[in-house]
Write a protein that binds this DNA or RNA. Structure first.
Length: 592
RNA sequence: GGCCCCGUAGCUCAGCCGGAUAGAGCAACUGCCUUCUAAGCAGUAGGUCGCAGGUUCGAAUCCUGCCGGGGUCGCCA
């Protein structure tokens, strides 16, 4: 039950009726106006800008927006659940609802529980969505930056799912490039080490200790049978073995963050030509048939020229036809395919999967890649599939305001796993979501486990725990009280008289709208901020009970009033629990 | 040099598809609280929304140019 969507529909109906009656021109697009909470709650419950948005079209019928709005206000006042509708400012329509509307919403929250807000996007929701995230190279443990993309993608997937889309969570394994050969050589070195050879890791190989167990496992599996063979013979099996080991490790790291993917897609599989044309070849062929491939030369990049730059003719994709800056090469100088070529093939597979929307979550350093990928998806889908690339900025790891030193070169960097083990899943997830994805994030290891109001994770979880504590105390005061949501929904809600009680209910009523807009914008941080706002309002109302005992939720002398207030508390708990669960953060019953 | 992201209170950041007097937390200042319901509470002050144009009834929001910070710039992934 989303009152904003509800009134948007009703007003759209009025406009359509006016058009039919010749009081407005036909064909006014309802998508152009909005129904939203007014800036200032004292203005009412809903604000609508339709009269101003359509002022131009309505000019022949109403000389100015205010008169148009007055006409609409007259119609809206007639609704049973509307207390009053009035015109304000240049032509705003402010609607005040009867309190019974909010009482109904609270009952809906209680009855639907954690499903309140589910499917909030209704028909606006994309039907089938693919969210690709993490996609860290299988060459080592994940670091904190990967973690941000992982948490972001996972929460976005849940959010879109909750709002009404069918979502597939996908991981693209970069198991085809040169870096997995480096991985294989590094693992082979550790294999020789495990067989008793003294080794030093040369430059260019991965030095991390995490490959030692892989070397040992190789030794167990192969004995010394690979030792004297040429690289051409051991590379493939060692590479496959090491990739599997790395993916197991990455899956473990993700599991520690409660992240799972439905699909792990192998880049290497795109190059498999054992069944005829490989996927990469097929993708290029398809683009060829659309005359988007040609042999040509690229101008050298401006600024500093790469040292090994050579001007040569190459296979190019005409991405400039779709807004890219230059056309992009598909084959390297040795004839093999570029990463971009495999990525085109990969996205072609996703398009074939019948998705309406593709979301890719990348690190900000891949920003230069967005246009060409968008061009490829547009070319391959004929513009039917939307690709939204979400770039996640860096994470700066801090401790008590001081940066934590990380040197990746030595192979001795702070891993995601270490951070999760130190501060817990909830802190990592919530903090990573409590910031826009494209803004850099400072993550302070000390601050996120602080139990104070300065720590948003604690603050929001504590609101849930505190609500639960109120219920426990109510039970102590009235041992026979039935606290089931169904029973509380029958409480006499009209007994709620305090303004901040209604402010809380009104904020609860916004939850579906928050879900809808956060999902539509692919911005889970909006939900995190909403939950913080909700917690904040609850805490501050709770604190008023310090000075004014009559405002406390549990009132020994007023069983009926207590019930009404418990209905509010329970509704709040449900929404907090629902939102936290969408973000993948626990809603604890107590914080001790 | 091209492209992308960012620039909002002293600091860290929100601000939806253009909407009414631009918000929150921290820090600062002023009171209160010191066992009351649970990790304090209430209030005050603080802004040229980087700058300059443009679009319009209306711009932090959209467009153009500039300034500043970051990222990126055939074959790396």
């Amino acid at each position: 039950m989303n009152i904003y969507a509800e009134f948007h529909a009703r007003i759209a109906e009025i406009l359509a009726r006016f058009s039919g009656e010749g009081r407005l021109p036909p064909g006014l697009d309802p998508a152009r106006f909005v129904v939203e909470p007014p800036r200032d709650a004292s203005l009412g419950d809903l604000a609508c800008n339709a009269a101003m948005v359509f002022a131009k079209e309505a000019k022949a019928f109403y000389p100015n927006p205010r008169q148009f709005a007055t006409e609409l206000a007259f119609e809206i006042s007639a609704f049973e659940d509307v207390d009053q509708a009035e015109v304000a400012g240049p032509g705003f329509l402010n609607i005040r609802l009867k309190p019974t509307v909010y009482a109904q919403i609270l009952r809906a929250v209680l009855r639907q529980g954690q499903d309140f807000g589910r499917g909030a996007s209704g028909r606006v929701a994309a039907r089938k969505v693919n969210v690709e995230y993490v996609s860290a190279n299988p060459t080592g443990p994940m670091h904190v930056g990967h973690g941000r993309g992982a948490v972001f993608g996972d929460a976005l997937a849940s959010l879109m799912e909750f709002s009404g889309s069918e979502v597939t969570r996908e991981y693209y394994i970069n198991d085809a490039g040169a870096q997995v050969d480096v991985l294989a050589r590094s693992a082979f070195l550790r294999y020789r080490e495990a067989l008793g050879e003294p080794v030093t890791v040369p430059d260019g190989l991965y030095p991390g200790d995490y490959l030692k167990p892989v070397g040992a496992a190789l030794a167990t599996r192969y004995g010394d049978s690979l030792r004297e063979k040429p690289e051409s013979e051991w590379l493939a099996p060692v590479r496959a073995f090491a990739i599997d080991a790395m993916m197991d490790m990455i899956r473990d790291d993700l599991a520690a963050l409660n992240i799972t993917h439905e699909v792990f897609f192998s880049e290497r599989s795109l190059h498999d030509s054992s069944q005829g044309l490989s996927d990469v070849e097929a993708a290029i062929e398809e683009l060829q048939s659309k005359e988007l491939i040609y042999q040509g030369r690229l101008p050298p990049p401006k600024g500093q020229l790469p040292e090994d730059w050579e001007d040569r003719e190459q296979t190019l994709f005409r991405s400039t036809s779709f807004g890219d800056d230059v056309d992009r090469p598909l084959r390297k100088s040795d004839g093999s395919f570029t990463y971009f070529a495999s990525d085109i093939a990969y996205h072609r597979k996703k398009i074939e999967g019948g998705y309406d929307v593709l979301v890719d979550v990348w690190g900000a350093d891949h920003g230069g890649y967005v246009k060409r990928m968008g061009a490829a998806v547009e070319a391959l889908s004929g513009g039917k599939v939307a690709l939204d690339v979400k770039l996640c900025q860096l994470v700066k790891l801090m401790r008590d305001g001081e940066p934590v030193k990380m040197s990746k070169r030595s192979g001795d960097f702070v891993t995601l796993r270490e951070v999760v083990d130190e501060v817990g899943v909830d802190a990592v997830r919530f903090m990573m979501l409590y910031r826009k994805n494209d803004a850099p994030l400072e993550f302070d290891l000390a601050r996120v486990i602080e139990q104070s109001k300065d720590n948003p994770v604690f603050y929001v979880q504590y609101a849930h725990a505190r609500a639960n504590s109120v219920l426990r105390q109510a039970l102590a005061a009235f041992p026979d009280l039935e606290l089931g949501p169904e029973r509380l929904a029958e409480a006499e809600l009209a007994l709620l008289q305090d303004e901040s009680e209604w402010a809380l209910i009104k904020l609860l009523a916004q939850y579906p709208r928050v879900i809808e807009s956060a999902a539509a914008a692919h911005e889970p941080h909006r939900l995190a901020f909403y939950l913080h706002d909700l917690a904040s309002l609850f805490h501050s109302h709770w604190n008023r009970g310090k000075d004014q005992p009559q405002l406390r939720f549990v009132n020994q002398d007023r069983r009926d009033l207590t019930c009404a207030r418990l209905a509010l508390v329970t509704g709040l708990m449900k929404v907090l629990a629902s939102g936290l669960s969408v973000l993948g953060v626990k809603a604890p019953d107590e914080m001790r």
